[in-house]
């Protein structure tokens, strides 16, 4: 759980860094996307690893949830979870579920057309098509809203998950405060950045 989660965090950072270039340079964004979209190492090694990582993470998440539910077969009639722990930490499966729904939408939006373009219809590669495709997606206010809403849940998921994964892999007391602060900054800045990019293209398109 922790290792796959951290792996996804690394991917998320990379994804963000590429997307953010679309705000200030159409050209850089196209170049980077073209590289990612056509480099065989990225396409045939990193991409399958990523897909495996995502599937592993959410399958293990559901499995963990079921396993933990079994550890208390008879539930309390009254349980004040909020008195001693945060809502986010108790509802990772919920925030994760929202992200999963988003990922399905995201796949239908970007990934499936992309695979279709490259490997099914085998259209000629145009290194400058990426920026236009991106902007086109965010023309719809509804899509931009769904996108932004999902990132709120990603932020919530990370606010607990990022620091939690360090504890799970055994990073102990010395770095505790650093990890708490780092988690907060990362979990707010990165999702907020994605939302900013979406709204930016919606407003400027």
């Amino acid at each position: 759980m922790a290792l796959s989660g951290l792996f996804l965090v690394v991917f998320l950072t990379q994804h963000f860094l590429i997307n953010v270039t679309s705000v200030f340079s159409e050209d850089i964004f196209n170049k980077l996307s073209h590289f990612m979209g056509t480099n065989p190492l990225v396409q045939f090694v990193l991409q399958p690893i990523l897909i495996f990582g995502v599937i592993f993470h959410f399958v293990m998440g559901f499995y963990l949830e079921i396993l933990n539910a079994k550890s208390r077969k008879n539930n309390y009639s009254k349980f004040s979870g909020g008195s001693n722990s945060s809502w986010i930490s108790r509802n990772m499966i919920f925030s994760g579920g929202v992200i999963l729904v988003f990922l399905v939408i995201h796949f239908i939006d970007f990934w499936i057309p992309e695979m279709n373009y490259k490997y099914v219809e085998v259209l000629p590669e145009d290194p400058n098509r990426y920026f236009e495709e991106l902007v086109h997606k965010f023309e719809s206010p509804l899509k931009t809203a769904i996108y932004s809403f999902s990132f709120i849940f990603l932020a919530l998921h990370l606010l607990h998950g990022f620091s939690s994964s360090f504890k799970t892999v055994g990073v102990d007391s010395k770095y505790y405060n650093l990890i708490q602060k780092g988690t907060f900054l990362f979990s707010v800045i990165i999702p907020a950045g994605f939302v900013f990019i979406a709204i930016f293209h919606n407003l400027t398109s």
Binding site: L67, N68, R72, G81, N84, S89
Partner: peptide
């Protein structure tokens, strides 16, 4: 069950054992 670091345990622990 498995720990997901919610931190509830250390709040309720009568001896204040740390989640660290």
């Amino acid at each position: 069950g498995n720990c997901t670091n919610t931190g509830a345990c250390e709040v309720e622990c009568p001896k204040g054992i740390s989640i660290k």
